[in-house]
Design a protein around this nucleic acid. Structure first.
Lengths: 160, 160
DNA sequence: TCTCGATTGCAAATCGGTATCACATAGCGT
DNA sequence: ACGCTATGTGATACCGATTTGCAATCGAGA
């Protein structure tokens, strides 16, 4: 087991969950990958844990979500993605490079809703557009980011 | 055909699409249901149009989305939902009654992102919490909303 | 170490959504 | 109104993602 998994173990125990090897590795991997879906996590981990089952990935993500340790991202046209829970924030999805960027959404808008009579408990914002680095690259077709470059192009159809 | 379908016909023709009975009825139904998924639309319409196929619902929603006549909603844990296109707005999902409420999000935040160097083209915000009417009802367990009361309760598991 | 309940992993089922293709229809010119 | 042709519709098969059932295994406390 990787040394930094002690951290994950602590979080799991704090939530009253058993700290199993799989859970610690999944949390650890999710922390490294950032915004990952079940498939990516599975494919990443199965290389080092050949016996890992997809079921375990799904079960674990579900359990961790229930325990409040991971968030589920909400992005249209994308499958379900997960991230380690932290302070609430929005996401920005760049349609050029497909990168998902955490936006430090100061909850200003949530507050304005709050004052309008709604109780806002969760924030699932996602903005789509073009990120800074893609703008910087301008109209050049240089694509440097290796991750998910296809599925989010201008065509509005689902990238399956 | 329902008399008010003339409205739908106009929209379809304006987008260069053929105005078929199914398309008009699907648009009309979507307008009545508000935020519906393909399944709800199908189940709602198949009662009056027994020959309707799910494929047609999916095809039509896809075509209408491409034509810009319907939006796709992005709400975590919910399947793909659709609504008639209008001015951009966010959604508020009440975890008590399960209702989805349109929020007149003035894009103030989108603008602040814009000035921060991002180009925001699409806004897919969704807030979760407790809506006004549920707050008004207080802790009383009276549930008056007939629609979708089960799938969105406090338990974070997917309501399938 | 032992024991028991929780977790894991396999296989199969399910589910939402898509691809294919024959048939029906709308919309156009006549 | 009639017939032609592109387009839309619907039945079925199909797909990948996710869930379920259940037996084997593991983790944590006695």
């Amino acid at each position: 087991m990787k040394p930094n998994c002690i951290d994950e173990r602590g979080k799991l125990v704090a939530c009253g969950m058993k700290s199993t090897y799989q859970r610690m590795r999944i949390m650890n991997c999710l922390g490294r990958l950032g915004h990952a879906d079940a498939k990516e996590l599975y494919e990443c981990l199965v290389q080092e844990m050949p016996s890992l089952s997809k079921t375990t990935v799904y079960n674990t993500l579900d359990a961790l979500h229930k325990a409040g340790l991971v968030n589920i991202l909400s992005i249209t046209g994308e499958g379900t993605r997960y991230e380690l829970a932290g302070k609430p924030h929005c996401h920005f999805l760049c349609r050029k490079c497909g990168k998902i960027i955490d936006m430090n959404f100061s909850c200003a808008h949530a507050h304005s809703l709050q004052s309008d009579g709604y109780i806002v408990e969760e924030l699932l914002g996602c903005f789509k557009g073009v990120c800074k680095s893609c703008q910087a690259r301008g109209a050049k077709s240089t694509r440097r980011t290796p991750a998910a470059p296809e599925s989010l192009k201008s065509t509005p159809r689902k990238g399956r």
